[in-house]
Amino acid sequence: MAARTKPSARETALITGASAGIGAALARQFAAGGFDLVLVARSRDKLDALAEALEAEHGVGVTVLPADLSARDAPKTLFNTLKKRKIAVDVLVNNAGVLEMGAFRNIAPERHQELIGLNVAMLTDMTSRFLAPMLERGRGRILNVASIAAFQPVPSLATYAATKAYVLSLTESLSEELKGSGVSISALCPGITETSMVDRAREASAAASQLPPFLIGDVNDVAAQGYAACMAGEVIRVPGALNFAASIAARAAPKWIVRTFAGALGRMAI
C-alpha cells in the first residue's frame, strides 16, 4: 500500500464513476489524504452511503452530485453547478468508463458509440473544462484512469482498448504541454481488477470466467497506486509487476509481434 501524502491545505478532488470499483476506492484514498470530495456517478444511493462513511471516518466534506455522464451536456452542467456553488476543483479524477467484451461485429453500432462517448468524448470534455481554472490558479492535478489495454490491440475488446489508447495518448501529450504550468496529469493503467465491470465480463465470456486469480488485481492496491502517482505528478502508473512488464514489452516490441500475440490470446475470448 502506497504511503499517503497530505495536501498542504484542504483541497477538493472530483471523482467520476465514484459509486463503486476503482472510483470508490480512489475516493477512499483521497479522503484518507485529507481532501474534500465531489463524488459523481448515476447512483445517488451508493454515493450517499459512500459519502456518509468517508465523512465519518476521515472528517472531510463530501458533495454528492448524481449525474449520467453519458449525456452530452453532463460535463458542462457539472462544471457550471460547481462554479455556482463556488467549489474549486484542485484534482480531477476521470474514472467513469464503460467496457463491452465480444466480437466487434456482434456489438451493436450504438454500443460502440456509447463506449466512445463516455470513455473518450466525456473524458476530453471534463479535462478541457476543469483544466482551464487550474491553469489560471497555477496549480492542479488530473488523474485519468486508462488501462493496460491502452498499450496493445485487444481482440474481443477492440473499441474499449482503442478508447483507452486515446486516454493514454491524451495524457502523455498534455503532460508535455503542461510542463511548468503547475498542473500535472497522470494516467493510471490497471490490468484486470476485481470490480463489478470484471464480474460482468465473466458473465459474458467463458474465457474471462476462467482467468487465474494471480492475473486479477486488488482494487484497493490499484487505487493506492493511482493516488500516489497523481500526488507525485507521475505521468504513467501501471500497477502490478506482470502488467508493468507487459506494458514495456508492448512498447518495445515490433507492432506486428504485439498484434500477433494479442490476436492469438484475444480470439480465444470471442
Rank of each mutant, 00 (worst) to 15 (best):
S19R: 09
G17A: 11
A25N: 07
A18D: 11
A41V: 07
A18F: 14
F35Y: 15
H58D: 04
F35R: 07
D45H: 10
V38S: 12
A20G: 04
G34A: 12
R42Y: 11
V60H: 01
E55F: 09
A41T: 07
F30P: 00
L26P: 02
A53Q: 12
I22A: 06
K46M: 02
L26N: 02
G21P: 07
G34D: 12
A53S: 14
V60T: 02
A56S: 13
A49G: 04
A20M: 12
G23Y: 01
A56P: 00
R44D: 11
G21D: 09
G17V: 14
A32K: 04
D45A: 15
L26I: 05
A25G: 11
R42D: 06
V40Q: 03
G33W: 14
G33Y: 14
G33F: 13
L39G: 07
G34N: 12
L26W: 02
A41N: 06
A32R: 06
L39Q: 06
F35H: 14
G17E: 13
H58F: 14
G59W: 13
E57D: 06
A56V: 02
I22T: 09
G23I: 01
E57K: 05
L54S: 04
L37R: 06
G17D: 12
L47A: 10
G34T: 11
E52P: 04
A18M: 10
Q29G: 02
K46A: 08
H58M: 03
A41L: 06
A56G: 05
S19K: 08
G59D: 07
V40R: 03
E57R: 08
L50T: 11
K46P: 00
S19D: 12
A49S: 07
G34M: 11
A41S: 15
R44E: 13
R44N: 08
A32C: 08
D48K: 09
E52T: 15
Q29M: 04
A56D: 09
E57L: 02
A41M: 06
D36L: 05
V38M: 13
A32M: 06
S19W: 14
A24M: 10
